[in-house]
Amino acid sequence: MLTFTIRRLVIAIPTLLFISLAIFLLLELAPGDPMAQVPLTVPPEVKAKMREALGLGEPVYIRFFKWIIQFFWVEPQVLIDNLLGTGFADGKLRILSWQTRSPVMDIVAQRLPQTLTVVGLSYVLGVLLAMPIGIYSAYRQYSFFDQIGTFISMVGYSVPTFFTGVLLIVIFSVTLGWFPSIYDTMHQVNDWDSLVIQIKQMIMPVSVLALYNAAQISRFMRASMLDNLNQDYVRTARAKGLSEKVVVLIHVLRNSMIPVVTVIALGVPQVFGGAIITEQVFKVNGLGHLLIGAIEANDLPMVQTLTFIFAVLIVLFNLIADVLYSLLDPRIRYE
C-alpha cells in the first residue's frame, strides 16, 4: 500500500512538470505585450530595462526554470516563514503579478477563502443531498420517488450553472428581493445580524453549485446501489434474518460507497473549475474570478500560476481517489 502511494507520488512529479511546461509554452505564444500600457514617450532603452525587470529578457528555458524554482522552492519557503516566523525566503524573488506587482501567491491566499467557503460548502451539501436521494431511488427502483428523483438529477446535470444562477437571481433578487445578487467579500461576520446577511448572500451561489453536484453524485450513487442490491450477499443477509435497515444501510451501502467515494474525490478539482462560472455569475471574489481578470489583463504569471494550481489539484485528487479505492476495496491491491 505504502509502496503504491509512493510510486504514484513519484509518477505525479513528471506529470506536473510536463503540465507546467505545456502551460508555459502555451502562454509563451501570447500576443499581448505587458509593456502595452506604458506611454509612448518612454524611450526604448528604458522599456528594455523594464522588460528585463519583469524577467522577460531571458530565453524561454531560463525563464521556465526560474518559474519552477520560484513555485516549488521559494513559495513553500514563504509559506513556512509565514507559519513559523522563520526567515528562509528573505531576499528571494517570488512570482510577481504583472497587474499589481505583488506576489501572486499573496493574492491567491487572499482569494482562496472565498472560493473555499462557497465551493467547499456547496460540495459538502451536494454530497449530503445526493446520498439519501441515490440510496432511496435505488431501493425503490421505478417508484414515483425514483422517477422524480432521476428526472430532477438529469435536469440538474443538464442545466448549466450559468443559467440556474441567473434564473435564481431573477427570481430571488430581482423579483422577490430576498437575497443580494452580488456576493460581498468584504462583509465581516461578527454578530448575529451579520451572520444572517452572510448566510443570505451565500444561499444562491451555494445552492446552484450544490444542485449541480448533487445531481451528478446521486446518479452515481443510484447506479452503484442498483449494482449491489441484486448481489447474492444481499440475499444471504436477508436470509439470515437481518433487518432491512441493516441490509441496505450497512451491507449494501458500504459496498456501493466504493465507486462513489472515488467519484466524489475526482469531482473536487472539477468543482473548482466549474466554480469559475458560478463565481462570475454571483461576482464572488474568488480564484475563478481572479483567473478571468488575469486572462483579460494579460497577466501571464498569474494565469500560469493559477492554471498550474488547478492542475495540481487534479493530479492530487486523482492520487487520493486511487489510494482511497484500494483502501476501501481489499480486492484491489496495486502492487
Binding site: I19, L29, G273, L291, I292, I295, E296, V303, T307, I314
Partner: peptide
C-alpha cells in the same frame, strides 16, 4: 490521455481563446 485528463480544461480553453483569437 492521462496527461490531458490532468489538465485544467476550462482555464486552458479560456487561455487558448485569448491567445489565438486575433490570429
Amino acid at each position: 490521455t492521462d496527461l490531458f485528463l490532468a489538465l485544467p480544461l476550462l482555464p486552458l480553453m479560456l487561455v487558448m481563446v485569448l491567445l489565438f483569437r486575433d490570429k
